[in-house]
Amino acid sequence: MRLLRELGIIGLSVSLGLGVGAIITAATGHSVPAVFRELALGAFSDVYRFANTLMRATPILFTSLSFLIAFRAGLFNIGAEGQLFIGGFFAAWAGFTFSLPPVLHLVVCLLFGAAVGGLWGFIPGWLRARRGANEFVTTMMLSYVAILLTQWFVSPGGPFHGGRMAARTVRIESTAELPRLLAGTQLSWGLLIAFIVALLVWYFLFRTPRGYELRAVGQRETAAEYGGVNVARTQILAMVLAGVLAGLGGAAEILGIHRGFTVGFSPGYGWDGIAGGLIARAHPIGAVFAALLMGALRAGGAGVDRAGVAPRDLVEVLQGLVILFVVAPELFRLVGRWRLRRRAHGRAQS
């Protein structure tokens, strides 16, 4: 029943977002039917296009999971974009540095991406748990560190520049490539990995004691502490896992699609994850559908752009509106809860 109501709210929100989008489309002098037709065709018209939607949904699923696992522990991981970049870079590094047998090499690369992503989550987690540094700020700032650091790594003159004109590393060994799921599309096995990881996150959160502790900390820190949960350790764990998930997403993207680290490989998948996690109401299975929605919007947006019926900017306005409308009710609820909790926390300390 609750699920039905949530789905109803989301459906209504999407329609509202598209409705307001339609008004803006018409007001700016573009054909509403043409834009919506191309939006739908771009995301769903045939196997190739649907593969495009799934391809775009894959990294968003990873970053949505990253956001929601921290969120379940009462923390905001705004830094998935950076964790994606640093994870992607080190997966590529393992991909062109080591020489290993086929499957093993791929696994090592994925683990490298996950581990370095985890490190990128550990730092703000530790700072938050031990030093009280606001993770909102630290994750965001570390994100820029990761993006700019990797950019310097692979730019001409940087230590890992591939030696050609573009800001890229050399190509990874073929043994490190994540194969394509469908030939002739960009969809890789990353999708299945993301899906399995989503199930694992669900299992962890709702079926293991650690997951229970994590959620307890997120619901009421003081109560969890009273109940014998090590709050600091749980917070660090949550942030490490958030980093691992985003880092794995970056690794899958680089190994499956770009086959070498390249500057600008993410059009903001990390930021999409924030919206994705909120749309999913911080539920791992919900995240699958949220990622699908966001992936469809991205793939459809490219379709509108390609057909030339409206500029890319307008499509981004549409995407933004849909996300805004879907997230808005949840966002208000969350910020309210978060402030209450902070206030309660403050009172408890004074």
């Binding site: 573009a166 599309t185 960009q186 699609i257 600008g264 490989f265 993410s266 059009p267 490219a302 752009d305």
Partner: peptide, 14 residues
């Protein structure tokens, strides 16, 4: 087409 990201290139070739 005017790709916005390098990530878009391969999709456009295909």
């Amino acid at each position: 087409v005017e790709p916005r990201e390098i990530a878009d290139y391969e999709g456009y070739y295909r």
